[in-house]
Design a protein around this nucleic acid. Structure first.
Lengths: 341, 341
DNA sequence: GTGAAAGCGCTAACAC
DNA sequence: GTGTTAGCGCTTTCAC
């Protein structure tokens, strides 16, 4: 079918060993021979088969990437970061999008293992229930290096890049407090997920450190989706003892809040201050004064990929766990306006 | 290193052929033998090597996907659509993100060819200059089925899914005209790209059909980026004979316009109507009344993937070009407000 | 400097 | 029903 190394060898009048040598720049080859071979390669439009090479060398130079929501730029940026580093090291990326579906995640892992990839970078989706041991054991029995990126998974057995969600939520809530707010509502993400749990801790911590009692009436349980945030926000706006600020646990949910605000003609932050987790590029560019706490997404991808490469290069020696925690940045937009009164 | 088909054969006391038979469900195997083999597979935690299989069958069940901007949800959704169909057919996706860089695109094609993928789906970036024959010949000499998705490439030799940009721009402009607007500015995308050219045609056509002279002073040349749109919009807002509406050629550029509007306290569409190409999910959810013309992104991905599968299945017979053109949808938000006066 | 030969893990005739 | 054998396209000793 397609042209092989043997065709080149024949065309150049050498053995395939020699062709292999010039392909891989290994061992000495006479200048003239090399030129003949290169000429044949050009003329026959030959491209070596990575498949055959992989089988022979037992290395695929391919890594697997699993994300829950490819159309969310948050993950798009993570992949972008991963891709940048992969490009430097000439690694290929096999991508799986799971639509937040654990079943698909497991299928992806299986397919990746068949592909004999060198390692997996995964941003796990949140579990349907708290108990998720089946998934974890699959991950552990994979026999392939696994790097977690900011996962929702409660597990300390894997290396990975994480965000300090406690600190992030603390900083965000604190900024509202410093601006004079005392009645600060919280809209959580799906409480099965680690980030949501941590952010709740950070929120409470900030209140407590500032001697503001935690009022359960101000804590609303969402699910990371904008629809729930919209409903909750409308609810909030009808409270008798309305909060003056809202802390929201995800970028999608900010949109839900904004929608409710927009409908009710609430100005941000004059009528209601808001801080959310993860930026929304669009609102940002447009210039809306939405403050946010932002994990460095592209950087997370880059670091994750570097962790994996480290792991691959240091064969047996350097396999110990490396968990890197990044501090999210608090970005105050029109911060003077965060002031309550 | 890892466990192979031979290990299973030995453990089950059969030949590897028989193991292969149960793996692929081909040929008859005695129930008892089959069970022994399955047991061995389970106990040894065996996963067959797709690499070896690929080499042997000359099929990789992998397709390449090349996009220019993975962190743009527009492409994220295309990939999502591709992935949905790929999942149904158990195909793997090797992904390359090119950052709008033709060099990287070419490198990606080379690497994909090495991987002996079955086909490529590519959303080409726009060319740096009009003459782009080198790129096209690379694509043609690839020897692998290529499917274009809404590319910026001026080429009719490839199958693909496309948007009727002329019709889209015509409809959008027309909607503004029907709302009473006569002075309609246009902010173009990069004019090297096919969509920009087509959209310009559609815009002009709508004006002409309505007996509105095309005024070159109202045509501004952008580059798809929000920064340029911002500058241009500020310029527009200072014109003596200001337009009453703006037609914008990309979602990113809408953001630039909105930013300028926001700064100048221009209300949409009361002070200035705007219609853009491609939706912005965020603004949409928030409920801003930004009308847009929208190609069905996920659907494009799905159709592109199906085209490719068609192509792969119908060996030599059905290889003729299939170019599917989808009509973009005009989505009028708060359409009554589009009315000029 | 170059080639012969074995082998990577699997599939696919073909034989029994 | 099951095994033998010959590859798939490459790399890698080990000779020469």
């Amino acid at each position: 079918m397609s042209v092989t190394i043997n065709d080149i060898a024949r065309a150049a009048g050498v053995s395939r060993t020699t062709v292999s040598r010039v392909l891989n720049d290994s061992g000495y080859v006479k200048e003239e021979t090399r030129n003949n071979i290169l000429k044949a390669i050009r003329e026959l439009n030959y491209t070596p088969s990575a498949i055959a090479r992989s089988l022979s060398t037992n290395k695929t130079n391919t890594i697997g990437v699993i994300v829950p929501e490819i159309n969310n730029p948050f993950f798009g940026e993570i992949i972008k970061g991963i891709g940048q580093v992969a490009d430097e090291y000439n690694l290929n990326l096999i991508l799986f999008n799971t639509d937040d579906n654990r079943k698909k995640e497991l299928k992806a892992l299986k397919l990746l293992k068949e592909q004999r990839i060198q390692g997996v970078i995964i941003t796990p989706t949140y579990p349907e229930d708290d108990f998720d041991s089946n998934y974890l054991s699959t991950l552990e029995n994979l026999g392939i290096p696994v790097i977690l990126i900011d996962g929702h998974v409660e597990c300390f057995n894997f290396s990975g890049v994480f965000i300090d969600h406690i600190k992030g939520a603390y900083d965000g809530t604190n900024a509202l407090i410093e601006a004079g707010h005392k009645k600060i509502a919280l809209i959580t993400g799906c409480m099965n997920s680690r980030p949501a749990k941590d952010r709740l801790i950070g929120y409470k911590k900030a209140l407590i450190m500032n001697n503001i009692p935690v009022d359960e009436n101000y804590i609303f349980y969402g699910d990371y989706k904008h629809e729930s945030a919209y409903e909750i926000t409308k609810q909030i706006l009808e409270m008798k003892d309305k909060p003056t600020a809202i802390f929201v646990m995800s970028n999608m949910m900010i949109l839900g809040c904004m929608k409710a605000f927009y409908e009710e003609n609430i100005r941000v932050p004059e009528d209601m201050a808001i801080i959310g987790f993860d930026k929304i590029e669009a609102l940002n560019i447009v210039g809306m004064n939405i403050s946010f706490i932002n994990g460095p997404t592209i950087e997370m991808g880059r670091i994750g990929m570097k962790l994996l490469i480290d792991n691959l290069e240091n064969k047996e020696s350097n396999k110990e766990l490396k968990r890197i925690t990044l501090l999210p940045k608090l970005v105050l937009k029109g911060s003077e306006k965060l002031i309550k009164r």
